[in-house]
Design a protein around this nucleic acid. Structure first.
Ligand SMILES: [Mn+2]
Ligand SMILES: [Mn+2]
Ligand SMILES: [Zn+2]
Ligand SMILES: [Zn+2]
Lengths: 143, 143
DNA sequence: GATGCTATTGCGAATGAGTTGCATCTGTCA
DNA sequence: TGACAGATGCAACTCATTCGCAATAGCATC
């Protein structure tokens, strides 16, 4: 897919434009993130990056993830397993349903829920800056 | 309020009925939890329990929290600050709005959102076992 | 009320994700 | 091709939470 190359280029240009050095390690991590279609944690990303360039350290993975999160290029999720999980920000906002048995993650978006959330916050005198909606479920027994 | 005494009694009876020893430390922690109207973390509960009985250790607070959570007597929340926060389960299900500036927590419940969540899960072939909805917001500038 | 068995406790050490200090290395720009 | 500030790897650290273990104390029984 070429969407991943574009995404990688966007990551790279963003750093360059901000005067942040585009190091070998960052390039590798950027590429790994651009290609990720799941919700990997830091360690998983470290393994993927290491496979490409063994010089990438876990510290640098963490530092790069933090950097990209601060720049708004990636998003951090904290599902129930403790670790942070990451995904690209260039897709439309969505929420997640997690299969309690397999850990599989589904994405969905409900315009209605988004609207209701805003209404609820407004009633309390608040503007929503961000939100977290996670459904934890079990496959419905087929009948 | 007498609701707290009832709640404490329910906690205590539950342990007793399950053949779990009702120790001094557990009584103190149970009482502190029964009286909590906020969303305290383990350390805050430890401080409150210590004030009543200095013999209560942080380990025992953690162990008791885990015990009560497993028995369904209290609920664990993981807001964005890393620590787990706890509250009694005997109130109706609700979700939370957190003030990003003050940390203040508001509770709300939307029947419509609850229903929409179930519909979304059903479409994906799932039953929701639990869910997490947290809104992080800023006070809306008054005009 | 005393006794005995074993769950529970306090303590300190361990864990695990994530961060940080520091000496060394390397992009970047002149 | 330097020069030099920013970036890196490594090991040590943090912080919430868990765990091993010897000592303690519920609680059922007498
Ligand atoms: Mn996603
Ligand atoms: Mn609550
Ligand atoms: Zn959403
Ligand atoms: Zn809800």
């Amino acid at each position: 897919m070429s969407g991943e190359i574009e995404r990688y280029e966007r990551f790279r240009q963003d750093l360059k434009a901000a005067g942040i050095r585009v190091t070998e390690q960052r390039k590798v991590i950027l590429r790994v993130l651009a290609e990720a279609h799941d919700h990997p944690d830091a360690h998983a990303l470290f393994l993927r990056a290491s496979a490409v360039d063994a010089s990438v350290s876990l510290s640098t993975v963490y530092r790069t993830l933090k950097l990209l999160e601060e720049r708004g290029a990636i998003q951090r999720h904290a599902f129930e397993d403790g670790r942070s999980r990451f995904e690209n920000t260039d897709v439309e906002h969505h929420d997640h349903l997690i299969d309690l048995d397999t850990g599989q993650v589904f994405e969905f978006r409900s315009e209605k829920i988004e609207r209701l959330q805003a209404e609820i916050a407004a009633e309390l005198g608040y503007d929503i800056i961000r939100h977290k909606l996670e459904l934890y479920g079990r496959r419905r027994p087929k009948r």
